[in-house]
């Protein structure tokens, strides 16, 4: 019995991804000793910070049986409108920035929720349409130029660090305080998904909508919460990105959906819904970020990057699908 549990943990998806990450780190470390050190961890966490925020939002949507490809557009309209509004009215408050950005995100999420839940349009098509609509509105009515004037208080957040490390050569590496946002979000998501009725409901409607309805879950309510949360987190992610890059661009995040969905799928979340874990998502994002940022250390030219990331996703999904088949074929107790 105990043996079975050990076996289950060892063959779990999270474990496989973790092993791949460790293996990749060892290989990169051997090829290029420059990789080993605290600075890699700091750079990596900075690189994956925003992706982490988007990934947890997207994972919740996918677990509920939907998909949201509109989050880059939602993030862009939220961050751009907020910064523009704050500059025009000379408002300078961090709290206001996040609140307004998140608020715009919630409104966009509400639009997605109505289309998917009430009118019952396939989520991919609905969110693709919303994405195009929002992006067009942002560029046509808000402006197409990057804004580099960020209100002072908001901007100063990018210069606050919770941990600094100086290497022998005297180069300083600092971990930004913004890393707390994803950390808090992941702990919160873990607790909500695992221990609350709402979280279990999200898994239930992703697994089988009819069964969930018969079991007494309010599907429409849960879907509204899921898509509005995703919109809110997209807004927060967009604002975080603005502070990190110290610039607000109306198109800066477009195209991010591919990487995020890839990271989630590699982390073991099933695109058909009902399965997925917070830890898996974290590991998936780490793996993708590791590949994206450190291929150059292995001597792989940068123009190979798109292909290699795509290839990893294909292999990852093939393995997942074979595993699903294998599990389904096993005799049920």
């Amino acid at each position: 019995m105990n043996n079975d549990k050990v076996k289950q943990i060892l063959t779990s998806n999270e474990m496989i991804v973790a092993c791949i990450i460790i293996g990749l780190c060892i290989i990169i470390g051997i090829v290029n000793p420059m990789f080993v050190g605290q600075h890699t961890a700091i750079n990596l966490s900075r690189a994956m910070l925003v992706t982490l925020i988007f990934a947890i939002a997207e994972m919740i949507v996918i677990v509920s049986g939907g998909i949201d490809v509109s989050f880059p557009a939602v993030a862009c309209i939220s961050l751009y409108a907020t910064i523009k509004f704050m500059n025009a009215n000379s408002i300078d408050s961090v709290l206001f920035a996040f609140a307004m950005s998140g608020g715009i995100g919630i409104v966009c999420g509400l639009l997605n929720a109505i289309l998917v839940s009430k009118i019952k349009i396939p989520p991919l098509i609905a969110t693709l349409g919303v994405s195009s609509l929002l992006n067009g509105i942002t560029l046509a009515y808000l402006g197409a130029a990057n804004i580099s004037k960020i209100p002072d208080n908001v901007d100063s957040l990018s210069q606050q660090f919770i941990y600094t490390y100086t290497n022998e050569a005297g180069i300083k590496y600092a971990l930004t305080v913004l890393i707390l946002i994803p950390i808090v979000l992941y702990i919160l998501a873990y607790v909500v998904l695992k221990y609350t009725m709402l979280g279990r409901g999200i898994y239930a409607i992703g697994g089988d909508k009819n069964a969930a309805r018969i079991a007494g879950f309010n599907i429409i309510k849960i879907q509204f919460i899921v898509y509005m949360t995703a919109g809110f987190l997209a807004g927060i992610g967009g604002m975080t990105y603005t502070i990190l890059m110290r610039q607000a661009g109306p198109q800066s995040l477009m195209g991010a959906e591919m990487m995020v969905i890839a990271a989630i799928v590699i982390g073991g979340t099933r695109i058909t819904g009902g399965h997925g874990s917070v830890i898996g998502t974290l590991l998936g994002v780490t793996l993708i970020a590791l590949v994206q940022n450190n291929l150059i250390m292995l001597g792989v030219p940068t123009h190979f990057q798109t292909f290699i990331v795509g290839f990893i996703i294909v292999v990852g999904t093939v393995i997942t699908s074979i595993r699903v088949r294998y599990i389904d074929a096993k005799p049920k107790v």
Partner: peptide, 13 residues
């Protein structure tokens, strides 16, 4: 761009 998105949503709805 916005119009394409809007038309798509409108038609499906």
């Amino acid at each position: 761009t916005a119009a394409w998105g809007f038309i798509l949503i409108a038609v499906i709805v």
